[in-house]
Design a protein around this nucleic acid. Structure first.
Lengths: 341, 341
DNA sequence: TTGTAAGCGTTATCAG
DNA sequence: CTGATAACGCTTACAA
């Protein structure tokens, strides 16, 4: 395989795609014979097969996936929508989704929305390229219907509102209650939550933590991080220190922010878990590699991915409806006690 | 959008795909009119448009991407081949590749080879679904030609052999020399490398480190890690400690193994960088969040991704040849001194 | 504003 | 073993 040998126009650019007809002509056979040679089908003599293959190679011929897909109906691709591959949560999810999807013969195209301004248009565009969509959509039900009508959709952790499509729901309350019991038992009484605020409002996670603490008569202070990064998590806790506020525990919206809390404590020579206890959410594997190792509410990513892929494949095949209770699955977080709390 | 309303057979499964013809029939118009309505084209009255859209919604109609792709030739997808999304290196790469590809209007399907036994077959299959391939192929030139003939291919860090296709080459020697100078200057004379062995042989990275050290009259001991994980890196260094071997520096094949080295040192109450200095390779962002922060030879992932996408898009459009010097780019690693060395 | 005809590149069917 | 013909679902031209 030397340089490009496609039929080239004056500028050296391919004038048009090399098609099966070109190969057929070059080899002096019919299109059907080319098909037989390319796909290792029987009913073709070894000799013509080689001649065809040679011609195909010479022309750099490659069957069009569209032509082929049109007639063979067994090519499925899944759109996986995530916020930002740079946040370790999403690769862990993506890894699991890609794995399960591959097992079912589905391809996965990755849609990262980190630099997307118009989510609806973005998802509508994605919808044109795939057979089903899974992930973090963050659209209102009506936007979602507009963008992805007629397509099987499974949202992951879609928030409190009753999902209008398929969904994998997170059940964090039990694990949160467990973590809160553990902390209050050892005397925590001034906890803080580093949250991701939505329009200035505390997240659902913060509310769960607050109400679990309320059961023990403890009040939660919620502060917002600027963005979802380690640095922002550290910044939020830095401000706490700077403000002279005393606290004995930090709950974080997720492990990334918790890592920031750890970093900030280290910067302020504050012992973890001695002086301040830190608890993250998600169960990222990076939590095992930091010092101290991060205590966290972990979700089994493989289970999430398995549910999501199962649902969406079922919806696509028609075995499952496109909405309703049958296409809702629940996954429980588990308290994983390591060193930080 | 309630349940699935596709034409259903006896089992409740869709009997066949809903096509433009079904919608046309249902709305009492021609196919062309349906196209106009679906694609917001002009030359259709608002009234018929609504009628068609209603019919389409009722039938859950969605244009086939194959039919559409066959006639509109502006849909490109890139296959990104990586080893294991679970290893933070690949998400960082994927994130950048997806970003640049999106900017050029390309979709990215992610092919994770971690559970792939037959790489050649896997890539051949992938080749059928995409317009170009980028990433870590790990195939011999002849396997590669067999699997991906006729397709633009850009390998990333393909190793020492002269690449037969497009390639983004890593130039680590200068950064390695710099790191080695730094370490020998502070008295390091018993360095170890935790390597990923290929068929029992030291990697190219190990050889570069060894020869840089030789310039300073220092000999390198190479040990292999079982696999490419933090735990394996820790295990390799644990064995060093167990063997009673003394060492004052650890070079790691990559940051992941270096994290393991850090972990092992911590387990053995060995000060880093006081007693042992640790240097990783890759420049993963996780290196900034561990204690002590990891000194590493960093590659600019965005630059790698930019080159890879530029090359492959150029090759696809015909602006660039499919092999040769014009489709080779070089990226230099940079020594990033943090705390661990 | 709407419909008709043709063709995109491929494979399945059936006749030779 | 090979080739002609007819789909596959869609859009672009052009005609009404």
């Amino acid at each position: 395989v030397a340089g490009p040998r496609r039929v080239a126009g004056p500028a050296g650019r391919p004038a048009r795609r090399v098609t099966i007809n070109d190969v057929a002509a070059a080899a002096g056979v019919s299109r059907q014979t080319v098909t037989r040679a390319m796909n290792d089908m029987q009913g073709i003599s070894e000799q013509t097969k080689q001649r065809v293959l040679a011609a195909a190679g010479r022309l750099s011929y490659r069957p069009s996936r569209f032509g082929r897909g049109l007639v063979k109906r067994e090519q499925h691709t899944l759109g996986l929508v995530i916020h930002d591959l740079t946040n370790p949560y999403y690769p862990e999810l993506a890894s699991a989704v890609v794995g399960f999807a591959a097992k079912q013969g589905w391809n996965v195209v990755l849609a990262d929305t980190v630099h997307t301004s118009d989510r609806q248009a973005f998802l509508a565009e994605l919808g044109h390229q795939v057979d089903a969509v899974v992930g973090y959509l963050d659209l209102s039900p009506c936007e979602l219907d507009a963008a992805l009508a007629g397509l099987p959709v499974v949202e992951i952790d879609p928030g409190p509102a009753r999902p209008r499509r398929g969904a994998v729901l997170f059940e964090m309350a039990p694990a949160i209650a467990q973590a809160v019991s553990m902390l209050t038992a050892v005397g925590v009484h001034r906890p803080v939550m580093v949250d991701i605020l939505h329009l200035g409002e505390p997240s659902g996670r913060a509310e769960l933590v607050a109400s679990a603490l309320a059961e023990h008569g403890v009040r939660l202070t919620v502060v917002g991080a600027e963005e979802n990064t380690v640095a922002a998590g550290a910044g939020a806790v830095d401000e706490l220190f700077a403000g002279g506020r005393t606290f004995d525990a930090v709950f974080a919206f997720n492990d990334i922010l918790a890592l920031g809390a750890l970093q900030s404590c280290r910067g302020h020579r504050t012992e973890v878990p001695g002086t301040v206890r830190v608890v993250g959410i998600d169960g990222l594997s990076v939590g095992r590699y930091v010092t101290p190792r991060l205590t966290t509410l972990a979700v089994d990513m493989a289970e999430v991915a398995r549910h999501a892929v199962d649902l969406v494949v079922g919806m696509h095949s028609g075995d499952l409806p496109w909405s309703g209770a049958k296409v809702r699955r629940r996954v429980r977080h588990q308290l994983v006690v390591r060193e930080s709390a």
